[in-house]
Amino acid sequence: MKTFDILYSVLRYIPSAIRMESIIVGLAIHIPFKQYSHFYRIKNTRRVASFDDEYNKDFFHMIMEGLSYDLDYSHEEQFEYLFNDKKKRFTDIQHEDFLDTRISYLANEFQFSPIESLQTSDEKVKKDLKNLQRMYLYYDRPKSERITKTEVRNLLSKQLNSYNLAHITKSPKIYDDFGGNNLYDYQINNSILIKAISFDYKRINQLSTELKNIIYDLKQLNTSNISKIILTRNDNLESLPQKQKLAFDNFEIKIKNIEAAKKLKIDLIPLSELERTLNQSKS
C-alpha cells in the first residue's frame, strides 16, 4: 500500500499582541502527491465575534477569501480551468514548499502554526482529512460528530510515522503502579515519552481524575533514562468551560513543579506543534 504525506498548518487569530490569546479560525492542507490544496475556514464566526469584542467582520472575511484564493486547488479541476489563470497560479502545487510559500506572509493578528505532516494512503486520505478538520475546527461540528480521544491517538500515530524516526516504540512497557495500563503512547530513542491527553471532558470530575492520575504517574516515573516527556493536548482550549480552563491552568503549574523537582523537561503542546518540539530535542 503506497503511502504519502498530508502537509497541514493551523491558522490562529490573535487579536491582541499583549495578551496573545488565540482562537483557531482555519486549517491549510496540501497533498503534493495528489496535487491538492485547500483552506478550510471556520464556519461558526459567532465564536470569533464573542472571542474578540473588536472583531471586524469585513476584514476577517477578506483574509479568509484571500487564503481560499491562494490555496484552493485540485488536480481534477485542471481541465475546467484550462482557459483561465488558475492552473498558471498553481504550477508549484507538487512542490514540498508550496504550502510554506502560500502562508508565510501572514503575521500579527493571523498566524499559521509550523507545517506538520501526516502519513496517509489512498484508502485513508478522505478519513484523515475529515479527522484533521474535526480536530482543529472542532466547534464547527455538533457534539456527536466531534473527534474522539482514540481518533486523536490515531492522528498522533500517523504524524509520528511521517517523521521517519529511527527508534520509535508504540505503547512502551511503562505501567502504572498496578501493572495494568501502559502510561505512554510512544517512546522515541528510548529517551522521549509521548502521551495524548484531552481537556475536553463534559464532566469536570472525569477531567480532574485523569489529570490527577497523570500528575501522580509523572511523580512516580523513573526518569534515569528519560530526557523529555511530551503531552499532546487538544486545541480550542479558549472555548472550554471555566472549570476546565482552571483545571488546565492548575495542571500547567503542577507540571512546572515536577519539572523543577525531577529536573525533567515536560512539554504540554497541541498536536500541531509536535514536530517542532521533537526537533528542539535534537538541538
Score class of each variant (00 low, 15 high):
E96H: 14
E96W: 14
D97F: 15
D97S: 15
D97R: 15
D97Y: 13
L99N: 05
T101G: 12
T101V: 13
T101D: 13
R102Y: 10
I103Q: 10
A107Q: 12
A107F: 12
A107E: 10
N108W: 09
E109S: 13
Q111A: 11
F112R: 09
F112Q: 14
S113N: 12
S113H: 11
S113K: 14
S113L: 14
P114E: 09
L118P: 02
L118A: 01
T120I: 08
D122P: 02
E123W: 01
E123C: 05
E123Y: 07
E123K: 14
K124G: 03
K124V: 03
V125W: 07
K126N: 10
L129W: 04
L129T: 00
N131T: 05
Q133R: 02
R134Y: 07
Y136D: 13
Y136H: 09
L137K: 05
L137P: 00
L137I: 07
Y138P: 04
Y138N: 08
Y138L: 05
Y139A: 01
Y139K: 05
D140K: 03
D140Q: 01
D140N: 06
P142N: 08
K143C: 04
E145H: 11
R146S: 06
R146K: 10
I147W: 00
T148A: 07
T148R: 07
K149W: 10
T150L: 08
E151R: 11
E151A: 09
V152F: 09
N154V: 08
N154E: 12
L156E: 03
L156W: 05
L156C: 04
K158W: 07
N161V: 04
S162H: 09
N164V: 06
